[in-house]
Nucleic acid binder design. Structure first.
Lengths: 349, 349
DNA sequence: CTGAAAGCGCTAACAT
DNA sequence: ATGTTAGCGCTTTCAG
């Protein structure tokens, strides 16, 4: 039942009646191998249950067969699990492509601020990583980016604030999505729409711009009082909620920079005993798990995190396998709206 | 600024004026090396920025320096991101220990049901993995467990339903935590307490038992009508909520098998315009991110997922480094209560 | 305590 | 189209 004997390429060669080189060629799908020998080798591989040893291949050819996923340094320090869903989506998206292409996905967490760069370089060497997926907010660390560039380590930035600092990047096209969602509110009759959320990351900036653009296109003013640019978490939402819903002329709808903020606004609305969504419409962003578990369930916009990570890996592998020239295109992925129960026409005046 | 030359153990040896063997010994902290030579070698390593190549070490010694984390096959297929937080906690917990001990953490996702086992065996060989962290619910797959055992692949089961099928395991001590929480409700004056949630996984079973035990200890009956054993997600909570809150004699408190279910119950309570928590207390389990973003914020019990994963990795590494005998103890980790705003004394009769 | 020789399993570079 | 010869960078013998 068990095959404890280590079976190497030599055993396969013997079994198939060819030289190890021929086996090696079949393994790597090299063109010039006779059809029959090829068959024989494949058969032998199957019968013996042979699996080539990656370490040996790496050692001999030094072609990377693993890519790293860089986790934010703070990951795991957050007591409220902020960003945990985002990370899993990243992991899963990257993993799918890696497994498909036979690469290993190695998780790497940035350590002490200063050492990150050298740690990474060491890892790349020691584990022979082909490159890194670098998700925001690490994309905003010039030190990191420079170190990677200086050591010629390929990386793809996921959702960077500026797209000119990385040769390879993937981002989501958030602005038009928020613009469309805001227009939707306007078409429903809303005239006093507020925006809640942060503005530092790419996410915050693009989303706010979309909100403003929709107003401009509809020739509607956007009042500063309806802009509450607080933090990016639930607490920020609480804060924005209290500020916005405490206004004399309360907005009839709030566009939030993400679902957590939206949940905070919702909580304040509940505190104030507002009837939802009749007295207040709220929209989020991310299409997080949370968005369907709030009450009312949030109308939101899907952020294709897994798809971004997958694309980043594809870029990396493409670059590696084409021998350095960045073939794979950078990409801007669309964000689709998800309509649930937190939006309604404004109350009649 | 750059050091493009590949520096190997030979360069280090030359620089330090010793043989490569001595360098190798220093690298592995072997005892018999003269203090001065040791110093010289370390200095040379530092100056040259030398990092040993893991592939070469693996090839020469076949001592695993990577461990695999097995992801559920369904991961990523879930549109509502169920379990995403759980996965990140797992990843982060495992990663922490791995990095500390200089192991790589390799993510592995089970593919097509049948092939999982052989895929894993192949991976272990090709990537020289030292073992697997196998989180529930994969822990309940006899095929998988047998395959691992048959091929003598070490693994540690995280939160298995039965602890007798894996030599190494880690679980959380959920029962006493729920028991204490339920007793807390009883002490607050609640006499009509319901339980909502699933019963198949370890989680469901243990949590329900804790609930029952608290009633027994307080000499209180537990009515079948107050037991709503639906699914494990938000929808299950919705279902349980409707069943429970639709009862003629409505419960004054609901203990939920997890936070998602609790959120569902909360949603139904909102639909029914109940004043929370005055008219209904709700407690969850998991201390998920969601639990502080619902309204009211959930009183819940923390599930130490990251700690479990970390412990599982420690067990694995311990076993590996001790040469096969499972030194590391299996572990039952405590679950701590987190009090928030969803619990109050029952309304006066 | 230290070093020389041999080889881990594979592939690149040459043959043929 | 196939085989031969050398290593890849390290560690394991085994001698000093």
């Amino acid at each position: 039942m068990n095959k404890p004997e280590k079976i190497t390429i030599r055993e396969v060669a013997a079994r198939a009646g060819v030289s190890v080189m021929t086996v090696s060629r079949v393994l790597r799908n090299e063109p010039y191998v006779a059809e029959d020998k090829c068959q024989a080798v494949r058969a032998a591989i199957k019968e013996l249950g042979y699996v080539p040893l990656q370490s040996a291949r790496n050692l001999a050819s030094s072609v990377p067969k693993a890519i790293g996923l860089l986790l934010p340094r703070e990951a795991g320090d957050m007591s409220d699990k902020t960003g945990y869903e985002y990370l899993t989506a990243l992991h899963l998206g990257a993993l799918g492509v890696c497994q498909e292409r036979n690469y290993a996905l190695v998780l790497v967490k940035g350590q002490s601020e200063r050492r990150v760069a050298e740690d990474l370089v060491g890892l790349v060497r020691s584990r022979q990583l082909g490159g890194f997926v670098v998700p925001a907010p690490a994309t905003e660390s010039p030190g990191l980016l420079n170190a990677l560039a200086r050591h010629a380590i390929p990386f793809s930035a996921v959702s960077p604030l500026r797209t000119d600092r990385a040769p390879l990047w993937v981002a989501a096209d958030e602005r038009p999505a928020v613009r469309a969602m805001t227009r939707h509110l306007i078409e429903l009759g809303h005239r006093h729409i507020a925006f809640a959320g942060g503005g530092s990351a790419r996410a915050g900036f693009e989303r706010l711009e979309g909100f403003k653009e929709a107003h401009q296109l509809a020739h509607l003013p956007v009042s500063d009082r309806y802009l509450s640019l607080t933090g990016f978490g639930f607490d920020g939402g609480l804060e924005s909620g209290r500020a916005l819903l405490g206004l004399a002329k309360r907005p009839t709808a709030v566009v939030c920079a993400n679902d957590d903020i939206a949940a905070g606004v919702l909580a304040v609305a509940h505190e104030k005993q507002l009837v939802l969504p009749a007295q207040l419409s709220v929209v989020g962003f991310d299409n997080s798990g949370l968005s369907r578990k709030t009450w009312p369930a949030l109308t939101t916009i899907d952020l294709p995190v897994a798809a971004m990570a997958a694309q980043a890996v594809r870029q990396l592998i493409g670059t590696l396998e084409s021998g350095g020239e960045a073939v794979a295109a950078t990409a801007l992925l669309p964000c689709l709206p998800t309509f649930r129960d937190s939006v309604a026409p404004p109350p009649r005046a």
